[in-house]
Design a binder for these strands. Structure first.
Length: 492
RNA sequence: CGCGGGGUAGAGCAGUUGGCAGCUCGCCAGGCCCAUAACCUGGAGGUCGGGGGUUCAAAUCCCCCCCCCGCAACCA
């Protein structure tokens, strides 16, 4: 039975159009999904949009359209962005999808029946203008920024999840890496948090939010957005919320064939809830926990936090328009160390595009293809003619091993550096041996064949990052008679 | 004493199971002239934030201090 690989991005909240941060997570997930498919593993890649909640309700009201319509519009933008970026997700889950809604209700009913959800109280600061609770962070000088009112302390009844019940179990599972949290400093952060502050029960429903999934046993309440959102990782596989835990023991029926997720990617702001509430929900439902939560950092744009007010937000379509699909993917993945904050910006992207893609990969491909074509050589290259895994990833075992190791550790920048080292080696060989000076075709061939082979091997391993360019190069260099062709990356 | 990240060549960054300090861009000199005015070689440029300690050996481990930046759960 082939190995299974299930990877997720968060469902993106539709309070905003896609930006480079969403794009980063999604491209990274896509790179991993493509790589594991190339390895012959059975792979499922899930992404989607999170569409319920008070914020969306308010936003739609401001725009004088129905929440549903608003969510449709933004969700479509995410879909378009991922199509443009050649994202190979197997499902795009919307939390407004009727099947998801039903499954969430079923799941909460299970948790309620088990006694893990009870009627409790929520206390918070309520703004009468907004008719909403506000967090302290929403306030400016203690006032609601929209209405300039001081919010009042209010409380209301709400259904509450017994998160505290699972604290010790969770802590143990995190500590012994049954639930892996990477990079390791993030794990430490969560362990410290749980040990220092402990886990309190959290509210799972609201009374005054209409745009949400009704609590099945009490329709006056709607399900709080994150309980709704987390379950996408299950419903995105086709789970209906009723049949856990038995399906697993019976070979993975009920849509849970891919469960549990091999890797869940996210940015650091949502790690805490993923490592606690989400995993506790799984414990409550009797399902295995995620294997790995991988937390990547934020992009800073020219040293500053990306924000609307600074006007430095980069959108995916801007990126694609300027550099093309594959180059955009490359720039995102090579820009910083995955797992840390990193500084990006147009200037940096331009530089990297020219250095690595135009002058590096693109130029080398032209250079070699041209030399082969001029000499009318027929190179018999290997690596993509055979069957099986090697057909997709080439024949350079040493390179594959190192690359594989980098990918397993989410070190995308390192994986790419390995490939680029091969390219640089090839340029060096050419400058050194000067095949363009030689008359003897056999001698020329002897020089060019290994160089072309290097390119072909690198191209195979490049597929997860640059699927189209990879295919182009493979086609070009697998041809009986290699021809020069158009530049892959025109200089900027 | 809230938690965490960062401070390495002019700029941007890699490098922590300790072992001659590296990459990209820029600058200087040379080579090549096949290739997208691309490519290759060499050079200048660093007390690896500061101080102390461990060690034959520290950017890397330990302690103290300074500076910058995130996060601090009902906010997805």
């Amino acid at each position: 039975m082939p190995k299974k690989f299930y990877i997720t991005t968060p469902v993106y909240y539709v309070n905003d159009v896609p930006h480079i941060g969403h794009t980063y997570t999604t491209v990274a997930a896509d790179v991993l999904a493509r790589w594991h498919r190339a390895l012959g593993e059975e792979t499922f890649f899930l992404t989607g949009t999170d569409e319920h909640g008070a914020k969306i309700e308010t936003k739609a009201r401001e725009m004088k359209i129905a929440p549903r319509k608003y969510a449709d519009e933004i969700s479509t933008k995410f879909k378009q962005a991922w199509r443009e970026l050649n994202i190979s997700h197997d499902n795009f889950l919307r939390t407004t999808d009727p099947a998801h809604v039903k499954a969430v209700q079923n799941a909460l009913q299970q948790m309620y029946d088990k006694g893990d959800i009870y009627l409790g109280k929520y206390e918070g600061l309520y703004c009468r203008g907004c008719e909403q609770y506000k967090s302290e962070r929403d306030l400016a000088d203690g006032l609601c920024p929209d209405h300039l009112l001081a919010p009042e302390k209010m409380s209301e009844e709400c259904y509450t999840f017994r998160l505290s019940k699972y604290q010790d179990k969770l802590l143990k599972l995190i500590k012994n890496n049954k639930l892996k949290i990477l990079p390791v400093n993030r794990k430490n952060e969560i362990v410290n948090f749980i040990e220092d502050q402990g886990l309190e029960d959290v509210s799972f429903s609201r009374k005054n939010v209409g745009w949400g999934i009704p609590i099945p046993w009490d329709k006056a309440h709607t399900i709080y957005v994150w309980a709704d959102a987390f379950l996408n990782y299950l419903t995105g596989l086709g789970w209906d919320g009723t049949n856990a835990p038995t399906p697993l023991s019976k070979g993975g029926a009920g849509g849970l064939k891919f469960w549990p997720p091999t890797a869940q990617l996210m940015s650091k702001d949502i790690l805490r809830v993923h490592a606690t509430i989400w995993q506790a929900m799984l414990l409550s439902l009797g399902l295995p926990l995620s294997r790995t939560l991988f937390v990547h950092g934020y992009f800073l744009v020219d040293g500053q936090k990306m924000s609307k007010s600074l006007g430095n937000v980069i959108a995916p379509d801007e990126l694609v328009k300027k550099y093309g699909v594959d180059a955009s993917r490359y720039l995102l993945m090579s820009a910083t160390v995955f797992g840390r904050d990193g500084d990006i910006g147009w200037k940096k992207f331009d530089e990297k595009y020219n250095a690595d893609l135009a002058n590096g990969l693109g130029n080398l491909v032209s250079r070699v293809a041209n030399l082969v074509e001029k000499n009318k050589l027929e190179l018999k290259l290997s690596g993509f003619a055979r069957s099986g895994v090697a057909r997709k990833i080439g024949s350079d075992k040493k390179l594959i091993k190192a690359y594989r190791e980098s990918m397993e550790n989410f070190k995308f920048d390192q994986a790419l550096k390995l490939l680029w080292q091969k390219l640089r080696d090839s340029d060096e060989i050419l400058s050194d041996k000067k095949p363009w000076k030689l008359e003897d075709k056999k001698a020329v061939k002897k020089i060019l064949a290994p160089v072309a082979q290097n390119i072909l091997n690198a191209a195979g391993l490049l597929e997860p990052f640059m699927p189209e360019v990879s295919q182009k190069i493979i086609n070009q260099f697998s041809a009986k008679q290699i021809a020069k062709g158009e530049p892959l990356f025109p200089r900027i």
